[in-house]
Amino acid sequence: MEHNVAASRLQGTGAHALELDGVARHFGALVALTGITMRIAPGERRAVLGSNGAGKTTLFNAVTGDFLPTAGRIRFFGEDITALAPHERIRRGLRRTYQISQLFTNLSVLDSIYLACRGVSRRRFSLLRPSLSDPNMAQAESIMHVVHLDADRDKLVGTLSHGQQRQLEIALALAGAPRFILFDEPAAGLSPTERRDLVAILNALPKYIGYIIIEHDLDVALRVSEYVSMMHNGRLFKEGTPEEIENDPMVQEIYLGGGHG
């Protein structure tokens, strides 16, 4: 039903989930991003590939508001969010995960996910302890189940394994009612089994949730995306389906280091 609500909302606006127009970000003389123009439809799942230093994470930081772009506009479901504070963007349904896990090491798994659910609810502030009937607590329990962390609900996050911390990263991004998620190398440091689990989790997300995934593991990236954008030196230089990208000689030259064609 939530899918229908989201779909009708989107039909109403006719907007793209995410629109970037000429987004640039400079750090002094360093040009980290330049002229990024990108349109992503609601529910679309896109991979952004590129070598280290290509500007992929900088692109995410600009979209989530970790820092403001030097130039260009960013629209989220038709609304200009270029100057909004990060938490305001999150409340509109944007989510992200981090390349290096950004978690609450002294909180339990359940408390962490509960806070993530509560953070995007209207009643995020309370001086009372969470009650068992709190709907955010129920949602936290169900998200914990989705990312297979049920057995670790009361463990402190700092004591979790790397793989479990990556799962928790995803759990925090799924809290509330996400409309679009930015996944920053979710498979980094995962074992082959954990990668298979990750692919299953991403493919099982409701269809109305779109995302961009940055991933160096092409096996993962191309199996969970419908469209691929390639970045190099802060620019977008190629877009296409996974097959087109995989067979593009220029992509192979830059991204895979040549010798593949």
Binding site: T64, D66, A85, P86, H87, I90, R91, R95, R96, Y98, Q102, L103, F104, L115, A116, G119, V120, R124, L172, A175, G176
Partner: peptide, 9 residues
């Protein structure tokens, strides 16, 4: 940083 990224001021 993460708290901002889950919607908190």
């Amino acid at each position: 940083r993460r708290m901002r990224a889950i919607g908190y001021d």
